[in-house]
Design a protein around this nucleic acid. Structure first.
Length: 851
RNA sequence: GGGCGCGUAGCUCAGUUGGCUAGAGCGCGUCAUUGACGUUGACGAGGUCGGGGAUUCGAGCUCCUCCGCGCCCACCA
């Protein structure tokens, strides 16, 4: 006996992984049709969460399966510098040291963060190994690798040369806490209750006042106009006149603009071009001055001295107080409105004006949309195709600039004498460069990380350079969380098509969020985060894999379930013990023999079951039905192999078949439980190589008549067990049979499976007939037990008669006969015949008892 | 304002193009057990598939409507 009684995953997993990795088999082998998956790169200095675990385990199932199907597989791992996220962590570190970003140059900060990341790098990669991913480590790409930057610059230059990049002063989403701008998609809009204040502005050319409504009174200090709708009768006469801006006492005009909704608030809007996107546009149309009153650090500037330097909430209070004092407040109401927050920190976002680099997305979005509509990429769940198309329809220009040092520098330089003169240059390590005698100064901003990760598939495969992995582009499938459909998938499709003229992947599989056990979103603040490494430590990597994909469907948020992990662990143990048993039968010196030789009906049956399972699993995986594939594995192994075949084998020896069944079972299970299957495989004397390199099982010949005969054995066993369970407990019964070949041929097996005392031939019917499976068999019960059982028989007879009536009802329906497919009608007829025969047997049996 | 999803067994959820008696894991009940496994085995109970209507020979699945949840997108001051 080579295997311990229970499977202890921790004792084997690290060694098995090392064996795989050193074998070189994770790398593509150069034979077969390419199959490729690029891993969404986890944060290089972070820890994996359950979402990562799900991602890589789904991907690894595909990678391992397709490798076994003979494809040339590459699964490319990655590590993300996670620009903003890492920066936030590092800035906290700086403030702990009593410093901030302004104490250092960009170069200094960059190298400091690099060291900071370097210290903790590798954690994540170890964790990926613990999850068993068969990734080609030699091809790992870090998002700040030279080749990444080179490709990103190439794409940027192409965009710049083709006029799709522009620099513009726009209202951007700005985090005053982190002092960087964001893309629209990084702003988390929350609908909340707020106060709408009504404020009177005294009119200068008429006696009176005009009342505006605002939720942000502090921005009043930067107002440069009041706007009304041109057709609004209430205000028509005031258009073109002036009002006095309260507190500041500046004269501003009343203008007319279609943008104003006369039904909202008072129908008059204060215009602050520097702090509201709509006002900005109004300001452009009317050539209004832009006065910035909130600085990039979130404090007030360009305002009367009593407000100078205040933060926004304080300024708001003071402004309201000043208005109150001036008796200019005309009431307030509570309204629901949308407020923007930083998606990461939850801090409020300020709309501020900033010069930024923008990508004109329209041409890219149109092309991506067309490709998706034409089905060049398929989606699981399919509904996301439409969602993505709609997203492209509404997409606005993309702000690529970030004011954080931890990222890829934007390779642009500005003429020191002409602010509008910019040149592209990759010498980003130099603060100033000279081009044609003119000095240019470096842009200090870095790229939005999605701009570089949006190019990930063709970067990692070296497609543009025609590198070794270029044949793997476009990749076969991209698996990630549904939450980054827009941020990442949408960008990859746009940039992939733009840079390579082909879609970056053929299929997108999106999983939903993993919620905690109670269906709540996991978050650090709630303290309900599940650490996948703890699950691996407690239950094993395979258990996590089986448990986490069970009953999980594409795109749906679903709760984490420990009971499913436990089920996964128990499954591994079951497999382990199947192996233990079979090894005890094969002995140590078993040698595999050439052609498979099924002898018993069970042999033929199990070949058929495993053939069918292999086909079903393949079909499920081809359609990305992971949970169903895993369920097929689970039940084939547990029910067919363990509960039936192994049990029968205890009475019908066929060592060659047992060894083959074990081999095949391990192969079918391997993508879903790689560690335990490989561990077992390595203990089998008749194998001298890795399970992960074996071919997926192909169909083996078997005899259908024999397989069907075994099914009749199963039916009989089931009935015997069912009836025996109803009989008084604690008593051993015997099965008696009369002239029944199936029973006569399987006496040992049947005795074992039904756990009866014995099975004996009789001449006369006696006792309780096992009528359901249509065998000439009886249980030797005494008269009292027999009468007790009578009511059960009657109940079953009544049920059967009801079923027959239902079926006959269907058959007597003319429309059913005419319209339903012929085979269904035929099946219904057959079913009626069977039920009637069964009812007849029950009746006979009852009449015997009554006699 | 626009869009998407969910509601199926006590719990967590599957259910592919409409077609045998609607499934799984866990939980629950009864029983069993020495040629692997108690992380076991056998048997069972438990569902008017959120309500109502429509289409169809046939609906958990299609359509309409209502109820209850959740999510995404969007610059309403």
């Amino acid at each position: 006996m080579k295997l311990a009684k229970t499977y202890e995953p921790n004792a084997y997993e690290p060694n098995i992984y090392a064996m795989w990795e050193t074998s070189g088999q994770f790398a593509p082998q150069g034979e077969g049709e390419p199959y490729s998956i690029v891993m969404p790169p986890p944060n290089a200095n972070g820890n994996l969460h359950t979402g990562h675990a799900l991602t890589v385990q789904l991907e690894d199932i595909l990678a391992r399966f397709h490798r076994m199907k003979g494809r040339d597989v590459v699964y490319i791992p990655g590590a993300d510098h996670a620009g903003f996220e890492t920066w936030v962590v590092y800035e906290k570190e700086l403030s702990r040291q009593g410093k901030n970003r302004f104490d250092f140059s960009r170069e200094q900060l960059y190298s400091q963060v690099w060291n900071f990341v370097e210290q903790q790098r590798g954690n994540m990669e170890l964790q990926l190994r613990a999850l068993g991913v068969s990734a080609s480590w030699e091809h790992l790409v870090f998002t700040l690798d030279e080749k990444v930057i080179k490709t990103v610059y190439g794409t940027f230059k192409k965009l710049w040369d083709e006029g799709l990049i522009y620099r513009g002063e726009r209202i951007v989403n700005y985090s005053t806490k982190y002092q960087t701008s964001y893309a629209d998609i990084e702003v988390d809009h929350k609908t909340e209750k707020g106060t709408l204040w009504k404020i009177a502005y005294p009119t200068l050319d008429h006696i009176g006042e005009i009342i505006i409504a605002t939720t942000r009174p502090e921005t009043l200090l930067g107002d440069t106009a009041i706007a009304v709708h041109p057709d609004d009768e209430r205000y028509k006469h005031l258009i073109g006149t002036r009002v006095l801006l309260p507190i500041v006492e500046r004269e501003i005009p009343i203008i007319a603009d279609e943008y104003v909704d006369p039904t909202f608030g008072t129908g008059a809007v204060k215009i602050t071009p520097a702090h509201d996107p709509n006002d900005f546009e109004v300001g452009q149309r009317h050539d209004l001055e832009r006065i910035q009153v909130i600085d990039f650090d979130g404090t007030m500037i360009n305002v009367p001295s009593q407000f100078l330097g205040l933060d926004v909430p304080t300024a708001r209070k003071r402004v309201l107080a000043a208005l109150q004092a001036g008796e200019l407040l005309r009431g307030e109401e509570t309204i629901e409105h949308s407020v923007g927050y930083d998606y990461k920190s939850g801090e409020p976002i300020q709309p501020l004006i900033k010069d930024q680099w923008f990508l004109n997305v329209r041409p890219l979005a149109e092309r991506a949309k067309a490709a998706i509509e034409e089905g060049e990429i398929t989606f699981s769940p399919a509904s996301k195709k439409r969602a993505l198309v709609q997203y492209y329809d509404n997409l606005k220009d993309w702000n690529l600039s970030r004011q954080i040092p931890w990222g890829i520098p934007i390779p642009m330089f500005q003429n020191v004498n002409d602010p509008d003169d910019w040149v592209f240059d990759e010498r980003v390590d130099e603060k100033e460069i000279v081009v044609n005698g003119t000095t240019y100064r470096r842009e200090e901003d870095t790229f939005d990380t999605w701009f570089s990760s949006g190019q990930w598939p063709f970067i990692t495969t070296d497609y543009l350079d025609g590198g070794d992995l270029a044949r793997f582009y476009p990749t076969s499938v991209l698996e990630t969380g549904v939450d980054i459909l827009y941020a990442w998938i949408a960008r990859m499709v746009m940039l992939g098509l733009y840079a390579t003229d082909t879609v970056p992947f053929r299929h997108v599989y999106l999983h939903g969020l993993i919620l905690d056990e109670h269906g709540q979103k996991m978050s650090k603040s709630k303290g309900n985060v599940i650490n996948p490494m703890e699950i691996v430590a407690e239950y094993g990597s395979d258990a996590l894999r089986m448990g986490i994909i069970a009953s999980r469907s594409a795109g749906q948020n679903q709760a984490f379930s420990t009971s499913k992990i436990v089920a996964g662990r128990n499954f591994c143990n079951k497999l382990w013990n199947i192996a233990r048993y079979i090894q005890s039968r094969t002995g140590d010196d078993y040698q595999p023999q050439g052609v498979l030789r099924p002898i018993t009906t069970a042999d033929h049956w199990i070949i058929r079951q495993l053939n069918e399972a292999a086909d079903a699993i393949e079909d499920h995986l081809t359609h990305y039905r992971f949970a169903e594939a895993a369920e097929t594995v689970y039940h084939t192994v547990w029910n067919d192999v363990a509960d039936w075949y192994v049990e029968v084998s205890k009475k019908q020896d066929n060592v060659q078949m047992l060894a083959w069944v074990l081999d095949t079972t391990l192969k079918l299970t391997h993508p879903f439980a790689p560690f335990v299957t490989e561990t077992i495989w390595q203990t089998l004397d008749w194998h001298h190589n890795l399970l992960m390199t074996k071919q997926w099982p192909s169909d083996n010949p078997y005899d259908e008549i024999a397989a069907a005969a075994f099914e009749r054995v199963q039916e009989f066993v089931s009935e015997a067990r069912y009836v025996l369970a109803e009989l008084p407990a604690g008593k051993k019964y015997s099965i008696l049979y009369q002239n029944d070949g199936l029973i006569a041929d399987n006496i040992d097996v049947l005795t074992h499976l039904t756990r009866v005392k014995e099975i004996r031939r009789v001449d006369q019917p006696v006792g309780l007939r096992l009528a359901s499976s249509n065998r000439e068999a009886w249980l030797d019960v005494d008269k009292d037990t027999l009468y007790e059982h009578q009511s059960n028989l009657e109940k079953r007879l009544a049920e059967t008669r009801q079923q027959i009536a239902n079926l006959n009802g269907r058959l007597s329906n003319e429309s059913y006969i005419q319209k339903a497919p012929a085979h269904l009608v035929e099946e219904t007829r057959k079913e009626v015949e069977q039920k009637e025969a069964y009812a007849k047997r029950l009746e006979t049996e009852l009449s015997v008892i009554e006699d």
